[in-house]
Design a binder for these strands. Structure first.
Lengths: 343, 343
DNA sequence: CTGTTAGCGCTTTCAA
DNA sequence: TTGAAAGCGCTAACAG
């Protein structure tokens, strides 16, 4: 069906090696170059990447394993990563782990059988067991958004804990003391919780048990049910730190449903500058992760490892996530606070 | 590095063909089967899909070219499609056309060089020129969400025109007569506009020029600026049909910014049951496309073409998209209307 | 059921 | 610079 290099050989009378060399950018006598180019055009020849890969052992394809393809977060990461990769001639094989460890391991296995040159992973758990197959196969892996207990892999994250701490500081300096937190026990959620707790401690504020809501994984449902519960409390918080995008969606749903207005009745800080904060009223105050940088750094590190290949020690890149002020935090008067602020 | 079938041969003393047969599910004497299985385990052998593909001419990979990876819409389609494909052992190579015809053609070319077995495409334009390379290479293509001027390709769409017509009918039967529309001149947008126009005509309602806003492509910005303009009108519409998800996001932004309440001050119908309608208040009345069905039908048709291969005539599947009532449409009194309704 | 053999389409020594 | 030949890891006749 499709023309092969042999057809070019027949058409030009040249040797296979010469044609191959031309295809790979080598030097060929210009007379021959012309011949080859004409034959290629005439026969509409396109090299068969499969055959090429078999001998070079490079597929120029990287595997991208995400916890949820449909989410806005991984969508944006995917978008940036794919742009960088395509620019460099790489394709992207995509797999959805559905936030499930087993599916994650299968996805990685799958990518490796497809002979990807490297893998970018948004990991589900902190246990690197699903990465065994990649290690065995010598396929480099870069972790995005979350790290693992093992230090064997490159990763690109943000400083979750300190970002959450700064967000909490902001609430406190706006006069809030009754600050609730909703988080997951996944890596990012937990780190952000730690930042929250540190800020509260620093400010000398006790955290009532019922101000902390968590679940194994983050979800819109977690945000929704937690917010509902918080609203039922006799001693309601005046502010809520929602440590994740999906969680924030749920929080907003609950607020809307109960007719609780933000920031009049409750203040809110979320994470991730995606669609929601663009369309919601009031504009959400949030911790903005540098999505494009996360993706580009991840790709850069992975390609370096693939192309230069040396056994550099794994590197961990931690990017800064800025707090972006919106209108969802109310400044309130607070005796103790105002004293502090006046000095 | 990695074990090959030859290592299994050396380990078991069997012939290559026997091992290959085993790997492909053929019958092998159980004694040998055991030997092979043990060797596979011992050597941690995994077949090299590249080599396999070279001879079978099947990569078990399909290309997925979308207009915008980051969008919620393609994300959901991607999610469903990938689930179906993985179940059948297929991988997915993903490319972003960025709603650009040139990038679309390049993406398709790219997929073909990667030897995908088939392509699922959310097309940018209605001109099938970017699909030439696929046709030449004999790679089947299924169009999702939009059709093309050419009838040469399978496609899975919804009945956009009639869905928009039903949505408009609903507004009219709720007593609205001043109904504006915001649409794009892409396929879906245009079709939906036609449905709107048909409904208006059927009801004998003239549409003022300034009630129709459109642009070449849909976008949040289109929704935002159009809604802003509509709100400035002396004779404001009482209802708006937003023919696309992104457009609706922009409409909501404008409404929020201007403090115009829905449905009290203006009624709204949108398209697509994605994140926005879940978190917005009031619940949006919308045309819900059957996302999972669109994806699964697309995959089903494509795999049938790949696996059965016969030259069936291209088929066009048009799915039904139901109107889901929310709370964003106000029922208003209207003299002419009430007469009609009373009979 | 099993093994031998011949490629799939390409790159890559190596000699010319 | 060029070309002949070997071979990447696997499957698919075909003969046994």
């Amino acid at each position: 069906m499709a023309a092969t290099i042999k057809d070019i050989k027949a058409e030009t009378g040249l040797g296979l090696a010469t044609i191959s060399k031309y295809l790979n950018g080598g030097n060929v006598r210009s007379e021959n170059r012309l011949k080859i180019e004409e034959a290629i055009r005439k026969l509409d020849y396109h090299p068969n990447e499969t055959a090429r890969s078999l001998v070079t052992k490079r597929t120029r394809t990287i595997g991208f394993v995400v916890n949820n393809i449909a989410s806005n977060f991984s969508g944006v990461l995917l978008q940036h990563a794919s742009a960088y990769l395509h620019d460099r001639g790489y394709g992207m094989m995509i797999c959805d782990s559905n936030s499930d460890e087993k599916q994650e391991a299968e996805s990685i296995r799958f990518c490796i059988e497809k002979q990807v040159d490297g893998i970018i992973l948004i990991p589900v758990s902190m246990e690197p067991s699903s990465l065994q197959s990649a290690e065995k196969a010598g396929v480099p892996v870069v972790l995005l958004d979350r790290e693992m207990h093992s230090d064997d892999f490159d990763c690109v994250i943000i400083d979750n804990s300190s970002a959450a701490e700064r967000a909490t500081d902001f609430l406190i300096s706006s006069g809030h003391r009754k600050i609730a937190v909703i988080y997951s026990n996944e890596y990012t959620g937990h780190e952000r919780f730690l930042g929250y707790r540190a800020a509260m401690k620093k400010a000398g504020i006790e955290i009532p048990e019922q101000y902390m809501y968590s679940a194994r994984t983050h979800s819109t449902e977690l945000g929704y049910t937690s917010m509902k519960a918080l609203l039922k409390l006799k001693d309601r918080p005046t502010a809520v730190l929602s440590t994740n995008y999906e969680v924030s969606l749920g929080v907003i749903m609950a607020l809307n449903e109960e007719g609780v207005r933000c920031p009049e009745n409750i203040s809110l800080i979320g994470f991730d500058e995606l669609i929601l904060p663009m369309v919601m009223k009031p504009k959400l105050t949030l911790v903005a992760q540098p999505m494009e940088e996360i993706a580009s750094e991840g790709v850069r590190i992975l390609l370096k490892r693939i192309e230069e290949g040396r056994k550099l020690p794994p590197q961990k890149v931690s990017l800064y996530a800025a707090l972006k002020e919106g209108e969802s935090v109310r400044r309130i008067q607070n005796r103790q606070k105002s004293r502090k602020e006046s000095k």
